[in-house]
Design a protein around this nucleic acid. Structure first.
Lengths: 144, 144
DNA sequence: ATGGGTGCAAAGGATTTGCAACATT
DNA sequence: AATGTTGCAAATCCTTTGCACCCAT
């Protein structure tokens, strides 16, 4: 049954009509925790839905982030990427290899300081940048 | 004396050679807390340094953020902007008017959760998005 | 048949690159 | 002279837009 497909279910929960393309895009996000860009999803989806266009993926992902089905991540100033995990968590960008990691145990603070009063907050993102463990080893090798 | 100019001083402190352009760009950041884009700085700088180019501003701001003289802010997926205030604080993006606000009393958490171990963190950004107080009033008018 | 969804081609726009000119020590 | 800095023009490349087609209700 369609109803048991996690991607299908999440679309319904978020009030999004489930087309083939939308299901496939969300399924990709839910099964690949690699913070893909539009293009990465496009290349993969094309295998299963050869007629799919980048435009659809752009539009769909933007809508997903507006409806709360995915996070739009702007941690890398060169390219937007997406995350299907919508439980609050933080992200890490490695300045060396460009990879984006999840910190599931860290999340954006949700208390409200006095200067935040009157602002209607719908979304929060917490980004860290630096060098990931793997690249630290690479760097050490380079130096020694 | 040059040494008393805050922009000049900060450049020295950050290990950046103070050229005319660099001083002017940093001075703009230190006196305008509007989170300007490259183009906004460009338009203003051109008045005082008519030969200045966008390229220089792109390169200079990138370098500033690498050397810790400014923050690069990617809260708006369409354009990067910059902030000369390098004390830790949070930012708010209004989805309605596009303005970026500071929350000086809020800052990115700096404790380390278990899944962050081994990562070398150099930078942290905390972004909130929603509707600012001014735009909430506008919206109310529209509806009523 | 009507509205929503998709996809193509083209336009738009921000950012980077290559390189030559220039300044500074 | 040597090194670092700047600026122009061109290239790049991600993203959006306009519009026609298509599908489902």
């Amino acid at each position: 049954m369609m109803n048991t497909d996690p991607a299908y279910k999440k679309l319904i929960e978020c009030g999004i009509r489930p087309s083939i393309q939308r299901i496939e895009i969300l399924r990709y996000l839910l099964t690949h925790h690699t913070h893909p860009t539009v293009d990465e999803i496009f290349v993969d989806l094309k295998k299963r839905v050869p007629t799919v266009s980048r435009t659809t993926i752009y539009n769909t992902l933007r809508m997903f982030s507006e409806k709360g089905a995915a996070f739009m991540i702007t941690i890398d100033e060169h390219r937007v990427c997406y995350d299907g995990t919508t439980e609050p968590h933080a992200h890490f960008y490695c300045k060396h290899c460009g990879k984006v990691y999840d910190f599931h145990e860290m999340q954006p603070p949700r208390n409200v300081t006095s200067d935040m009063e009157g602002f209607h907050i719908e979304d929060a993102q917490l980004y860290y940048k630096g060098i990931c463990p793997a690249c630290q080893h690479t760097e050490e090798k380079k130096i020694s």
